[in-house]
């Protein structure tokens, strides 16, 4: 029996994030191949019921429930994770390259002197261990990296890297009672939750993104309606964010977020390299631009050359119709 494969599970509003389910799905195939067990690690305050929902996805669900873990902090979550890792000594720890993943994983990987590969998009087998697919230079190059199979590896993946497969495992639920250590040098003064129920931009399956061609902030309502219809999110180019038409949270590209939805629709976006770098791993790319020579058409699968203000209302109607049919 080889060492376990761990998945650090993230959730939001008492629902496990899709990205974590993706990792559990891929992790299951890996565990099968290595004949190791797949273990979901869940921590927080009041997560007992949430642990139950993971039963079908893993062989073991280790959770720790503590008031100290109500809000995320690398010190408290790290303290819990460290204790669990030391106890079980897994081979691989999988996580999402979310803000928590980017903050917690390197900190604890360094503590464990583990190998850390972040922001990957694929994973396969290599000799005794795994190999990981990771884009470099904003997607200009793709690399395959092999973490040392003998040491513990931490690997984070972009959301939408793997398909979610429902499994019918009968995972054993195990509670770990831990003493959580808080770093006295850190003090939270305030935590202002945005309260938005919108899906996370990086996790959205559908993104409709507006550029300077949208002409002004008021026209983004049309995009919001379409995103709402599709259960997706509105994105923006940097020009739009710099003009204060949209929040920085919406920015896609080199200096914003990297997204890979199933469907990306760019409206009035020229397709500057800095923008492309943030979205070219999308499964299907659509561009709507009145300029047939706009660079975005070099990256798009489908293009409409026309005035976006004429196209958007019709697009909304069409999408609505297909939604109603299905």
């Amino acid at each position: 029996m080889t060492r376990d494969i761990f998945v650090f599970v993230e959730y939001r509003d008492s629902t496990v994030r899709k990205a974590s389910l993706e990792l559990l799905s891929r992790g299951r195939q890996m565990a099968g191949k290595f004949s190791s067990s797949l273990c979901a690690v869940l921590m927080g305050s009041g997560v007992k019921e949430l642990a139950q929902t993971l039963k079908g996805f893993a062989d073991k669900i280790i959770f720790t429930d503590s008031e100290e873990l109500k809000d995320y902090g690398w010190d408290t979550y790290g303290s819990a994770l460290e204790q669990i890792l030391k106890k079980y000594d897994p081979m691989i720890v999988l996580g999402t390259s979310s803000m928590i993943g980017k903050d917690l994983f390197p900190r604890i990987a360094a503590r464990m002197r583990a190998t850390m590969i972040s922001d990957a998009v694929g994973m396969d087998f290599h000799e005794e261990g795994v190999k990981v697919k990771k884009p470099l230079f904003g997607g200009k190059v793709v690399s395959w990296l092999a973490p040392d199979a003998a040491s513990m590896s931490f690997i984070t993946f972009r959301p939408n890297s793997f398909a979610v497969e429902t499994a019918d495992a009968q995972g054993e639920i195990m509670e770990e009672g831990l003493t959580i250590e808080k770093d006295p040098r850190m003090k939270t003064v305030s935590l202002e939750k945005s309260g938005s129920k919108k899906v996370d931009l990086q996790e959205a399956d559908f993104i409709i993104c507006g550029g300077r061609g949208m002409k002004g902030p008021e026209h983004f309502d049309a995009l919001e309606e379409i995103a709402g219809l599709m259960g997706g999110r509105v994105g923006a180019s940097r020009t739009v964010v710099d003009s204060k038409w949209r929040e920085y949270d919406d920015q896609i590209g080199k200096s914003g977020k990297t997204v890979s939805p199933k469907l990306y629709i760019g409206c009035g976006i020229s397709g500057a390299l800095h923008h492309i770098m943030g979205m070219d791993t999308s499964k299907v790319i659509v561009a709507i631009n009145k300029d047939p020579n706009a660079p975005i058409f070099q990256y798009a699968d489908y293009g409409i050359v026309d005035d976006l203000f004429q196209v958007l209302p019709a697009l909304k109607e069409e999408l609505k119709n297909t939604r109603e049919e299905t």
Binding site: I285, Y302, D306, V311
Partner: peptide, 24 residues
């Protein structure tokens, strides 16, 4: 402890299909 196995150019997307139509 990380070994680079290989580098690849990203998969090229097929050429764009411009959607035909008389009107938007």
């Amino acid at each position: 402890k990380i070994k680079v196995l290989s580098y690849e150019s990203p998969a090229q997307r097929p050429a764009v299909r411009i959607i035909e139509g008389q009107t938007p």
